[in-house]
């Protein structure tokens, strides 16, 4: 079952397209990475999932229903942290927590206390005195104590230094290991995301260029490096080509259906692609219009 689904969703702001044709399916229990450059439509897509923006065309489903029709108790199963979110600066953490707790029946104070202690946050501090990293940690504390079934994080790690980012992402993995939760996070810091996500969707200019299980993608997509010219037709018989490049002293192709047993007779060196390289391949693909 999919926790979140988008089917050809479209959203313009005036004449400016933000999301032009977005399809996405977040499987239950997955940690899903919504990836793309700034301005590719990630935040607009998330706002449509949250029911904060209405798609002008297409459909969005969360827990199988239109997010606008979610009942309060269903909505309480979603936790959402955005990049620019916060509490009023004068508000004490204790007040912020009491306010937040009042909305959620499933609130687990034990989870909150454990997080506060781990992060070294004191309840009599006011929100404004926290550093950027601490603010994010406090928001995560609130989100986790809410015991969500779906956690949506819009650029959760941006602007944080590397150790705080790592800790933040490790916390997500702990959560995924302690209870069944689906996580959707958007990011443009791919090396971070690579550690935690199992599914990814690459967005470009308001549309999804490719969605897949990351491990499947890494198994299937490889770069073959030939030291001399390779007969392209022979190659095409065995593989489907995503990208090809003539380089000095050789020829390189990225194939999407790599299988070792079909490598017989091909004299080349096989390179693995990490998430960043995969992203660049699909980013370049969509430029020439060869989407999917």
């Amino acid at each position: 079952m999919n926790i979140v689904e988008m089917d050809h969703a479209v959203r313009f702001f005036g004449a400016t397209p933000a999301v032009t044709d977005m399809c996405l399916a977040v499987p239950k229990g997955s940690v899903f990475g919504l990836l793309g450059e700034n301005g590719s439509g990630k935040t607009t897509s998330i706002k449509m999932m949250m029911g904060a923006l209405i798609p002008q065309e297409g459909t969005v489903r969360v827990f199988g229903v239109d997010p606008l029709t979610l009942k309060p108790e269903q909505r309480a199963r979603i936790a959402y942290i955005a990049d620019d979110m916060g509490l009023p600066n004068w508000m004490k953490l204790s007040e912020g927590m009491a306010l937040h707790r009042s909305y959620f029946q499933q609130w687990d104070q034990g989870v909150a206390d454990e997080r506060l202690e781990r992060y070294g946050l004191r309840l009599n501090q006011s929100f404004g005195t926290l550093s950027k990293g601490q603010k994010r940690q406090f928001l995560l504390t609130l989100a986790l104590a809410q015991q969500p079934d779906l956690l949506i994080l819009d650029e959760p790690a941006s602007g944080l230094d590397v150790s705080v980012r790592r800790d933040f992402l490790d916390s997500l993995m702990e959560l995924a290991n302690t209870r069944e939760v689906s996580v959707l996070l958007s990011s443009h810091i791919l090396t971070d995301v690579e550690r935690v996500v199992d599914h990814v969707s690459f967005m470009k200019k308001g549309a999804c260029v490719r969605q897949a299980n990351l491990e499947d993608m890494k198994e299937g997509i490889k770069r073959l490096c030939f030291s001399e010219n390779q007969d392209r037709d022979v190659l095409l018989q065995s593989f489907s080509i995503l990208q090809e490049k003539q380089v000095q002293g050789g020829y390189q192709v990225v194939v999407e259906d790599f299988a070792a047993e079909r490598m017989d007779g091909l004299d080349c060196h096989v390179e693995h692609l990490n998430l960043e390289e995969l992203f660049l391949v699909f980013n370049a693909l969509s430029d020439v219009g060869a989407v999917r």
């Binding site: 229990g29 997955s30 940690v31 992402l169 490790d170 993995m173 702990e174 995924a176 290991n177 302690t178 550690r195 935690v196 996500v197 199992d198 491990e215």
Partner: peptide, 17 residues
């Protein structure tokens, strides 16, 4: 699966695989 996934800070679905 879950113990190893927690230890390595990995997604349990990856370890299950």
């Amino acid at each position: 699966v879950r113990a190893l996934a927690s230890e390595l800070k990995l997604n349990p679905t990856t370890v299950a695989r």
